[in-house]
Design a protein around this nucleic acid. Structure first.
Lengths: 212, 212
DNA sequence: ATATTATATGAGCGATCCTTCAGGTTTGAC
DNA sequence: GTCAAACCTGAAGGATCGCTCATATAATAT
């Protein structure tokens, strides 16, 4: 279970019995709930332990400190997002630009809304430096995957694929965060689902040069 | 000097002499700097007072508590953003859609990048409930202004102007935050300046029905 | 049944931080 | 020069929180 690079790894152990794996899962879920209900400033190890139904000493058996707990929880829950985008990009490679665009948006929305509670909890702590670094790593993977698949489009080329990829990442990341974090109703999320494909397609059409 | 609605207003006074106005300004600027350098978890009244060159007792003369200080600082520094967008929207009313679109983007980028340090500091605490409420109020004003000006376009109509306004707000707010918060170099901000007009124009073109 | 290993506990320590308040300094009116 | 008002100070009290550790309980191997 990975921890922030700067953290010393003690005292911490790996679960060996089912009941300790269940304990760690309960601690992760409790961390998310406390973030959502109380916010970052009231995220304390005492509250998390209480919410998880364990004692604070149990929590400190598995995590050297509070920051490590947070980092480990986010890494476990969110590692799937960059991975899903890489897989989607690979599967879309060589298609037309429209198919690529719609496919990327679809994969992105699926990855980000699969677990909206975790995404919201993430946003609550995203400004923390080490969490931001974790997110930047993920973002860099996504951006690289998007650039590769844009270049692979069979009916379009780009004068500056890296820049286009940058903007797409800003669009995808920014709009979804805006909607999820803003606590908007299901209506706005549905509107975004309908509009994001149009938006990305429209933008890529303007940026692409057709290959006749 | 406004404070969060729920906060009790004592002990707190309004500056009467120039030196106390200067003190309050120094406290606000120090708050921003501590947020940028140390992050929210290390935003303490002691650090802010030290950075401002005053004692903590001075700080508590003007602000009943830490949350009130933060709220008041952000309200003062950012109140200009919704206002700038409302003015821009009013000035753009009745124009063609392209002029409206480019004008909104321009006004938005100007408002958000006029003081990038404050915007970044804001993002560091945006998840805090009361700050989020302050931001939502601003967002609601901007969204209403955008909707009005879209409806006023002389060469286009929209089947669902409110939804289009929602998406524009998500695009504008989300992409700028993504870039400013990500601490990207001036290159990415320049890329955004170049691309955001294209993006919004492209999207609005797809959503609009021409008036022949 | 016993011993070992894994897991769990929560009171308490030490550190940090918010806020107060009695007292000090500066400014301006008279 | 005196006095009132405005402004400033920082040690200290109280609260909160991160984390430890001596001890308890459960699971597993023999």
């Amino acid at each position: 279970m990975p921890v922030p690079p700067s953290a010393l790894l003690k005292p911490r152990k790996t679960p060996r019995q089912a009941r300790s794996s269940a304990t760690v899962d309960a601690i992760f879920e409790a961390t998310i709930q406390v973030l959502l209900v109380d916010g970052q400033t009231k995220l304390t190890t005492t509250r998390v332990a209480e919410r998880a139904g364990v004692s604070v000493g149990t929590l400190y058996q598995y995590f050297p400190d509070k920051k490590s707990l947070l980092y480990a929880m986010l890494q476990q829950r969110l590692d799937g997002v960059p991975q899903a985008m890489e897989i989607a990009a690979d599967q879309l490679a060589g298609n037309t630009l429209t198919v690529i665009s719609d496919g990327l948006v679809s994969a992105w929305l699926a990855a980000k809304t699969r677990d909206i509670a975790t995404s919201r909890a993430l946003y609550a702590v995203a400004a923390d430096l080490e969490i931001a670094n974790l997110l930047n790593k993920g973002s860099t993977r996504i951006r690289a995957a998007i650039e590769r698949v844009l270049i692979s489009a069979r009916d379009a080329t780009f004068e500056n694929a890296p820049s286009v990829a940058d903007i797409l990442v800003a669009i995808l990341g920014g709009t979804v965060r805006s909607v999820i974090e803003g606590g908007a109703g299901p209506n706005l999320l549905a509107t975004l689902r309908a509009e994001l494909p149009l938006l990305c397609r429209a933008y890529l059409s303007v940026k692409a040069r057709s290959v006749a």
